[in-house]
C-alpha cells in the first residue's frame, strides 16, 4: 500500500507543477465555470418563476418533481461538485487512455510494477476543477439548511457516503467507456455522449416522466449520482436507498475492474 500512496503523491505533485505553467487557462476555466453555474441556476429558476415575471405567491408555490427551489438547489450543488470532480480527476486521466492506445505508450504503463488501472486513473489532476468542486460544496451548504436539512453528524456521514458512492459509479461508467477505446480508437467521443446524458443529473430524477425516470435509475444510474446524495443531505434517504446505492457502486466498480482485465487480455493477444 505504501508504494501506491507515495506514487499517488508524486503523480499529483507533478500534475500541479505542470498546470501552473498555464495560469491564464486556469483563470479562463474559472470564469467559464462560474458563468456556467450562474446559467444553470438561471435555467433552474425558470421552472420556479412564472414567465410573466411576478414572483411565485405563497399559494402558487411551484415545485419541480415535488422538490422546492432550495431542495432543487441542493441537487444542482451535488451536480456541480461531481462535475468538478470529473473535470479535476476523470477527464484528464481517462481521456488520456485513448492517446496511450493510439501512440502505443500504453506499453510503458503495462510494464510498470504497479496496477495499470490505478496508474491510468490517477496519473494526473487538473486543479481548475477544484474550484468548481468548492462552488458545489458552497451551494450545498447554502441551500441545505434553507431546505430544512438538519446537518447532524450521522446524516452528514450518510451524505458523504452517498456522494462517494455516486463518485464511484461515475468513475466506473467513465472508465468502462474510456477502456473500450482499446477496441474502438476512433470512437473516443463516446465519453462526450456520456457527459451529455449526465447533464440529466442537474435536476431531481422525479422531475422526469416515469419511463425516463426508470432509465435514469437502472440503465444510466444518474439517480444515484445526484438525486440520492441530495436526498441523503436533506436527511430523507431511506436505508433501502442507501443500500441500493452502495450495491450499485460496488457492482459498477467490480465491473470496471473485470472489464479492464478483459480489455487487457484482448490488447495483449491482438496488438502488434
Amino acid at each position: 500500500m505504501g508504494r501506491y500512496w507515495l506514487t499517488l503523491r508524486r503523480f499529483w505533485g507533478t500534475a500541479l507543477a505542470g498546470q501552473l505553467e498555464y495560469q491564464l487557462n486556469v483563470l479562463i476555466d474559472l470564469l467559464a465555470m462560474a458563468a456556467n453555474l450562474a446559467g444553470s441556476l438561471f435555467i433552474l429558476s425558470l421552472f420556479f418563476i412564472p414567465a410573466d415575471g411576478s414572483a411565485a405567491g405563497a399559494d402558487a408555490v411551484r415545485r419541480l418533481g415535488g422538490w422546492s427551489w432550495e431542495e432543487a438547489l441542493v441537487v444542482q450543488g451535488v451536480y456541480t461538485l461531481l462535475d468538478g470532480a470529473a473535470s479535476t480527476w476523470l477527464r484528464p486521466n481517462l481521456g488520456a487512455i485513448v492517446t496511450h492506445v493510439r501512440e502505443g505508450t500504453l506499453d510503458f504503463v503495462l510494464l510498470k510494477p504497479i496496477d495499470s488501472q490505478f496508474w491510468l486513473s490517477s496519473r494526473t489532476l487538473a486543479p481548475a476543477g477544484l474550484s468548481e468542486m468548492a462552488l458545489g460544496v458552497g451551494l450545498i451548504l447554502w441551500a441545505a439548511p434553507r431546505a430544512g436539512a438538519q446537518l447532524q453528524p450521522v446524516a452528514l456521514a450518510v451524505a458523504a457516503l452517498m456522494l462517494l458512492a455516486g463518485l464511484v459509479i461515475l468513475y466506473s461508467l467513465w472508465f468502462l467507456l474510456a477502456a473500450s477505446s482499446i477496441w474502438f480508437v476512433k470512437t473516443w467521443n463516446a465519453t462526450e455522449v456520456l457527459r451529455a446524458a449526465l447533464t440529466a443529473g442537474r435536476f431531481p430524477v422525479s422531475a422526469y416522466p416515469p419511463g425516463l425516470r426508470l432509465l435514469l435509475t437502472l440503465v444510466l444510474p444518474v439517480a444515484f449520482l445526484t438525486t440520492v446524495p441530495a436526498e441523503a443531505i436533506l436527511g430523507r434517504a431511506t436505508p433501502t436507498l442507501v443500500g441500493a446505492a452502495l450495491v450499485m457502486a460496488l457492482v459498477s466498480f467490480s465491473l470496471s475492474r473485470a472489464f479492464w482485465r478483459f480489455a487487457l487480455r484482448y490488447y495483449t493477444s491482438a496488438s502488434s
Binding site: G2, R3, L6, T7, R9, R10, F11, G13, T14, A17, G18, E21, K112, P113, I114, W119
Partner: peptide, 17 residues
C-alpha cells in the same frame, strides 16, 4: 512532455518503490 525529466524520474522512483 511538458515537465522536466526529473519530475518523471521521481514518479518512476515511487512506482518502483
Amino acid at each position: 512532455w511538458d515537465l522536466p525529466p526529473l519530475d518523471s524520474l521521481r514518479v518512476n522512483a515511487a512506482v518502483y518503490g
